[in-house]
Amino acid sequence: MPLKRHKALQPLSHNHHHSLLLCWKIRMGFRKQIDLNRIKRYTDWYFHHHIQPHFSLEEQHLFPILGEDHPLVKRAMAQHRRLKRLFTDEYEFKRNLSRIEDELESHIRFEERVLFQEIQAQVSKSQTELPEILHRELPYEENMSDPFWE
């Protein structure tokens, strides 16, 4: 049964969908034995254009709803830090790409199934509005300069 997502959180969920596709693209790159430098170039681009802005939006406008001391926010922040390190580490490409594929998918599932549900419950209980900025879709552009996954 699909989760009922608050309208203001739907743009973030759409971003999550695109990031799940990134995980699939990494898996396809491994399956097709694509040169790791090609996959790394794409994930670098994706990190700068999509992951960083998404994390910033969540950290600045969404997580404060529960507060920085909330255990779910602490968990999400720790996952953000870990993913940022994996994306920006210039060594051990294969290991890091494999971990990104696994940990990013796990992180998205956690946010969608647990954290967002808690935020929705808190907003409903306190009858507050989610920040207006969350209602805006982060623009998505695809980088088709090297579609290694096709």
Rank of each mutant, 00 (worst) to 15 (best):
K84W: 07
H16V: 10
S124Q: 15
D35Q: 15
R82T: 10
H107S: 03
Q127P: 01
G67C: 12
E68H: 13
H16F: 06
D35V: 14
E150D: 12
R31M: 14
M28P: 01
L57T: 06
F63G: 04
F30R: 10
L97G: 01
N15H: 12
D89C: 08
Q122N: 15
E118A: 07
H18T: 11
P71G: 07
H17M: 14
H16N: 14
D89P: 08
E137S: 15
T128A: 08
L62M: 09
T43A: 02
E150A: 14
Q60M: 03
L12C: 05
I119R: 00
E132H: 13
I108K: 02
E105Y: 07
R109S: 04
F63A: 04
P11H: 08
H17K: 03
A78W: 02
H48L: 13
R5C: 08
R38G: 01
A76D: 04
R85T: 07
F93V: 04
R75N: 07
D146N: 14
R113W: 00
I26H: 03
L104W: 02
E92S: 09
W45P: 10
R81Y: 07
L22K: 02
H6D: 15
E59P: 02
P11I: 03
F47K: 08
R109E: 03
S124G: 08
E90R: 09
W45K: 12
P64R: 00
D146T: 13
N15V: 14
N96G: 02
S126I: 04
K74C: 07
V123I: 08
H80I: 12
M77H: 09
N96Y: 06
L66Y: 02
L138T: 04
I26G: 05
L3T: 02
Q122D: 13
G29R: 03
L72E: 04
P139H: 11
F30E: 01
Q10C: 04
F47W: 10
R41P: 00
A121R: 14
H50D: 06
